[in-house]
Simulated assay, not measured.
Amino acid sequence: MADRTSSSITIKAGKPEIMAVIADLEAYPTWASGIREFTVQESGEDGRARRARLTFDGGPFSDTVGLTYDWDGDDAVRWELVEKGTVVSGLHGSYVLAEKAGVTEVTYELAVDVRVPMIGMVKRKGQKRIIDSALKDLKRHVES
């Protein structure tokens, strides 16, 4: 698996409110840049996605992949690639939430492998751009 890249942002909201937005995968196209479609294929007893298909525009390429999810209440969610796309051959990510004094620090970690040869530094820069954009979009959506 590729090197992981992570970044954090502070959001003026509690963990339950933020995790509710994160868990509503099918709403991502309305607020998350680059996400064209998210379809939940299977949900767990808690109503949260266990398996989903994601279609995204990632700058120079677009792809559709299948993901599985593991939820840790309102503290964290982790996802893994289970259906490779035409470009993406490996993917692992997570959101980890830590609430303090009425604000929540959200840390997003991502590792992506692609079929196209790519210099590590270029790939990490791309991952960092995806993470930073996702965190800013999440903050804007939750705080609006």
Results as ranks from 00 to 15, higher is better:
residue 40 V to S: 02
residue 55 T to G: 06
residue 55 T to L: 07
residue 136 K to Q: 14
residue 76 A to Y: 01
residue 141 H to L: 04
residue 106 V to R: 09
residue 54 L to H: 06
residue 38 F to V: 03
residue 70 D to Y: 07
residue 65 V to G: 00
residue 80 E to L: 12
residue 10 T to H: 11
residue 52 A to G: 10
residue 82 V to Y: 14
residue 34 G to K: 01
residue 11 I to N: 06
residue 49 A to M: 05
residue 92 H to D: 10
residue 96 V to C: 07
residue 67 L to F: 13
residue 135 L to P: 13
residue 23 A to H: 04
residue 52 A to H: 05
residue 78 R to S: 10
residue 51 R to A: 03
residue 143 E to L: 09
residue 92 H to L: 12
residue 144 S to W: 12
residue 120 G to R: 13
residue 142 V to K: 00
residue 23 A to G: 01
residue 126 G to D: 08
residue 76 A to E: 06
residue 144 S to H: 11
residue 109 E to S: 15
residue 97 L to W: 01
residue 65 V to H: 02
residue 33 S to T: 08
residue 24 D to F: 03
residue 103 V to G: 09
residue 121 M to N: 12
residue 82 V to S: 07
residue 32 A to H: 04
residue 119 I to N: 13
residue 49 A to G: 00
residue 79 W to F: 10
residue 80 E to S: 11
residue 36 R to H: 05
residue 49 A to N: 03
residue 33 S to C: 02
residue 79 W to E: 01
residue 104 T to V: 02
residue 122 V to H: 07
residue 141 H to R: 11
residue 43 S to P: 05
residue 112 V to H: 03
residue 140 R to H: 13
residue 90 G to Y: 10
residue 132 D to S: 09
residue 97 L to A: 12
residue 115 R to N: 15
residue 16 P to K: 13
residue 19 M to Y: 00
residue 58 G to P: 06
residue 34 G to P: 03
residue 26 E to H: 05
residue 15 K to Y: 05
residue 121 M to E: 12
residue 132 D to V: 08
residue 72 D to N: 15
residue 117 P to F: 15
residue 103 V to K: 15
residue 39 T to V: 10
residue 59 G to D: 04
residue 49 A to R: 04
residue 71 W to A: 02
residue 34 G to S: 10
residue 105 E to M: 11
residue 120 G to C: 13
residue 55 T to C: 04
residue 45 E to M: 07
residue 72 D to G: 13
residue 49 A to V: 07
residue 34 G to H: 05
residue 66 G to S: 14
residue 73 G to I: 09
residue 114 V to L: 15
residue 57 D to V: 07
residue 7 S to K: 04
residue 144 S to M: 11
residue 104 T to R: 04
residue 134 A to I: 03
residue 26 E to Q: 13
residue 103 V to L: 05
residue 29 P to T: 03
residue 102 G to S: 07
residue 50 R to D: 02
residue 74 D to Q: 02
residue 41 Q to A: 08
residue 140 R to M: 11
residue 25 L to M: 08
residue 144 S to Y: 08
residue 107 T to W: 08
residue 134 A to L: 06
residue 51 R to K: 15
residue 144 S to D: 15
residue 87 V to R: 00
residue 10 T to K: 15
residue 36 R to W: 01
residue 75 D to V: 02
residue 57 D to I: 02
residue 47 G to Y: 09
residue 88 V to M: 09
residue 126 G to W: 01
residue 70 D to V: 11
residue 28 Y to Q: 03
residue 126 G to M: 12
residue 25 L to W: 04
residue 65 V to I: 15
residue 46 D to V: 08
residue 3 D to I: 05
residue 60 P to Q: 10
residue 61 F to A: 13
residue 120 G to A: 14
residue 91 L to H: 07
residue 22 I to D: 02
residue 49 A to T: 04
residue 37 E to Q: 10
residue 85 G to P: 00
residue 122 V to F: 13
residue 121 M to I: 14
residue 14 G to R: 11
residue 130 I to D: 09
residue 26 E to P: 02
residue 40 V to N: 01
residue 11 I to E: 00
residue 102 G to T: 06
residue 17 E to K: 15
residue 20 A to W: 02
residue 52 A to W: 02
residue 67 L to Y: 12
residue 94 S to Q: 14
residue 62 S to L: 03
residue 19 M to T: 05
residue 53 R to N: 14
residue 62 S to C: 07
residue 110 L to Y: 06
residue 62 S to K: 09
residue 140 R to T: 13
residue 25 L to V: 00
residue 106 V to I: 10
residue 144 S to C: 10
residue 89 S to N: 15
residue 68 T to S: 14
residue 8 S to F: 07
residue 134 A to C: 02
residue 62 S to E: 09
